[in-house]
Design a binder for these strands. Structure first.
Lengths: 351, 351
DNA sequence: CTGTTAGCGCATTCAT
DNA sequence: ATGAATGCGCTAACAG
């Protein structure tokens, strides 16, 4: 009973370094020296080794190398949800940087469940030299404990005071502040804020920005909401009911959901109500009206996490923290409140 | 010079199975037996081993296990672009299924460059037991050659006639046909098609669907376009210039770009022109008007790829091919052409 | 039921 | 400059 001649049928066993050595008429050690370049090898054997490697299609077994070197040349990335383009972008940033350094990327999706973050990180840490943890939802206490068990743990969008976990994070506080500033300049005095998950570190940071920006000339009304577009869709009515002239969403996703609801309701944006997002996902400039938001380069976030990962390996000293300041991008979803139409000069912005 | 007491400062060396054995007062083999459950172990030693494992926080070294077993319990996934939520979703599907089977996922991003696909797959194949290749752009010839070098290669959205590469793919042909049918039912007779990348397998499949659907009562005008939203934005004017009453986009992304352009132009959808997408990305139901498209469960695609991956390991016989038929979802971006308004009964659909 | 031995594939000693 | 020997951490095959 013969096997198919093409495709996956007959598969020759993988060549080992011994096969190559035999084929080239040298010792395994010489093959290794040629491949790693660790010690000089004279031209003759070198050529024969290279030829044998090519002929056999030999590639060293990473597991064996890892076992010997005690290092894997791999980095783990734990994300709450790969369906969320935000995390997919961060992952891409890490992966690209890692590939550049000849590192592999292992990925785990926790399905937004804080309970599985720990196990996922622990598991990946056995396969990789370290782990990048994106927006971990676990408690501060768990995180600290995890950092003790995982070599080279780097956080994205989660800062931990008192511990030395390296982290790169968006300055949500500053982002929220710039949105508030923008809305106040337009003349808004009462803004509804569509809250994200209460336990999220980024939400708490936003709250700090809100507290700093609130004052006699800017009232913030908090609306429980969530982080998805359907959350935004659901919370839109409550936001409208507050009689606020502007709605500030936790994220672009939430804003887009709210926008869809406003559209269903026949509420015009920005004529009747202004709307802002956060993150500047690609679709925010495609919807109508184009969304005013705050922009952050997610791939860059991932790239910086990689850099931290590399640095951390070097010393293992106190965890450096990189803050990335997002930038306000004013588009068409914000305008002066209806009762002030014409009382302010038109702003010349990216419309 | 003391190290920091918290966080990443002092790190004890990883415990090995020998440490555990010593700690429990047994031999390494017994520890292994307790952990793998390969052979029975009496209660006393078992308890001591478990306690020692917990105390030392021991976890077996996967590299060593892999070396011994000749298998890695990992699967590689190669995608053209992680920024594209389509691929991120497929990746999530694979990852979730893999995690369920206690497999790790390695990911590589080729940056849409066909030239790097081969290397990425080859590289991952050394670290994993096999590779899932998403929408490979490489030539048929390269793909066949790659399949011979990579154990357990599975393709997503790329069928190869003549070879036995297992694959799961969306039935683009049927999807396009159902859109054509829908538009013809509405009364459209002239449709502009915004073409995807000419070399893409999925585009060629769409063309087959188009050829089958075209006829005396349905003319298809081809417009070179691309696969991104900016491509759609750019090609929108040309589509309008054809005087077609409906525009059929290669994908939802392209459609969203075109929609944004129509909005800028003041062209009303669907009153002046109907518009359709393909894929049903989450934002298609949030834009205004909500996009008529064809839906496919991308995570399911990934899950099925995983299943194929598992099956392939079992026999290694001829590659099974799974076709996933997408479903038309009619929303608000399609209607009867303007010159036929009122001449057809309103369709009762998801508006 | 348990301990001892050997070897997975490789890089790195140490000899030559 | 090269070859032979050693061991990374683990599990499977033997012995007891």
């Amino acid at each position: 009973m013969g096997r198919a001649q093409t495709g996956t049928g007959a598969r020759p066993p993988r060549a080992t370094i011994i096969d190559v050595a035999r084929e080239a008429g040298v010792s395994p050690a010489t093959v290794s020296r040629v491949l790693t370049g660790s010690k000089p090898v004279s031209a003759g054997p070198e050529q024969r080794v290279r030829a044998a490697v090519a002929r056999l299609g030999y590639r060293p077994n990473p597991a064996a190398q890892g076992l010997l070197r005690g290092t894997t040349s791999a980095v783990g990335v734990v994300v709450p949800d790969l369906s969320n383009p935000y995390f997919a972008e961060v992952l891409k940033g890490v992966t690209n940087a890692a590939q550049h350094a000849d590192f592999r990327t292992l990925v785990a999706d926790t399905g937004e469940k804080a309970a599985t973050e720990r196990d996922a990180a622990l598991e990946l840490s056995r396969w990789a030299d370290g782990v990048v943890l994106c927006s971990p939802r676990m408690s501060q206490w768990e995180l600290t404990e995890l950092a003790a068990a995982v070599p080279r743990l780097v956080c994205v969008n989660r800062l931990s005071r008192g511990t030395s976990i390296p982290a790169v994070a968006v300055d949500f506080e500053a982002g929220v502040a710039s949105i508030c500033h923008h809305l106040r300049e337009l003349g808004h005095r009462r803004v509804a804020y569509l809250r994200g998950p209460a336990r999220a570190w980024s939400e708490r940071a936003r709250q700090r920005g809100l507290r700093a920006a609130a004052g006699p000339d800017l009232e913030i009304v908090q609306i429980p909401c969530g982080s998805s577009s359907v959350d935004g869709h659901r919370a839109a009515d409550a936001a409208l009911a507050t009689r606020a002239t502007a709605v500030m969403a936790f994220s672009d996703y939430v804003a887009l959901g709210a926008l869809a609801r406003f559209d269903e309701l026949g509420v015009s944006v920005p004529d009747e109500v202004s709307l802002t997002g956060f993150d500047d996902i690609s679709l925010s400039r495609l919807v109508s009206p184009r969304l005013t938001t705050v922009t952050v380069n997610k791939q860059d976030l991932g790239r910086r996490a990689w850099e931290l990962f590399v640095e951390t390996g070097a010393d293992g000293e106190d965890g450096p923290v990189v803050m990335v300041t997002p930038e306000l991008v004013v588009r068409a979803s914000t305008a002066a409140p209806a009762d002030m139409a014409g009382s302010l000069p038109k702003t010349a912005v990216d419309r």
